[in-house]
Each structure stands twice: as C-alpha cells, then as structure tokens.
Amino acid sequence: MLLIECPWCGKRHETEFQYGGEAHIARPEHPEELTDQQWADFLFMKTNTKGVFRERWNHSNGCRRWFNAIRHTVSHEILAVYKMGDEPPKIEAGEADK
C-alpha cells in the first residue's frame, strides 16, 4: 500500500485517496478549432510513462482536495507532492531511475 503525503494533511494511507491519472493535461483553449485527431489526443491518448510520472490524486476521504504527485511507476516511490497550479518540482533524471 502506498503512503501518500497530502500537501495539507500529511502522510496518509492510500485508501484515503482516489487516483486522478496523468497530470498537466491542459484543456484546449479553443475547442471549436480542434481537429478530430487533436480531440482524440486530448481525450484518449496517454503518456503512460514507465519511470518518473506526474499524476493527480484526490484526498477523497480526508480534506477532499486535489494535488499532484511525482511517482516512479516501477518502484512506486513518491518523489514529490505539490499543489494544483504549482510548477512541478524538478526531479533529476537518473536520481529516481535507480
């Protein structure tokens, strides 16, 4: 089980959280101008990174707020958490890919 640090509440068990998938997918500014291909890319296509991955979590059984985490998808190690709207912290490549 993951031990996840909510930026507001501190470390809690994974069962208190809901997963929100890949982070930093921006909704298109001008949706009416998008081609079908661009819509498909926005709606369905995923980065699905093997390695250091930026993702969203919701502390649904706690403060009910959303935040972002940087987690390694093989080791499951959580390398950083940061609030919605914040710039993602820089994670040195290699440091996490051990």
Binding site: L2, Q18, Y19, G21, E22, N48, T49, K50, F53, E55, R71, T73, V74, S75, H76
Partner: peptide, 8 residues
C-alpha cells in the same frame, strides 16, 4: 486493477 499507473 489497482487504481494507479504502474509497471511494477
């Protein structure tokens, strides 16, 4: 499945 993405 487990909810989170993983290759582990």
């Amino acid at each position: 499945i487990d909810s989170f993405n993983s290759y582990g």
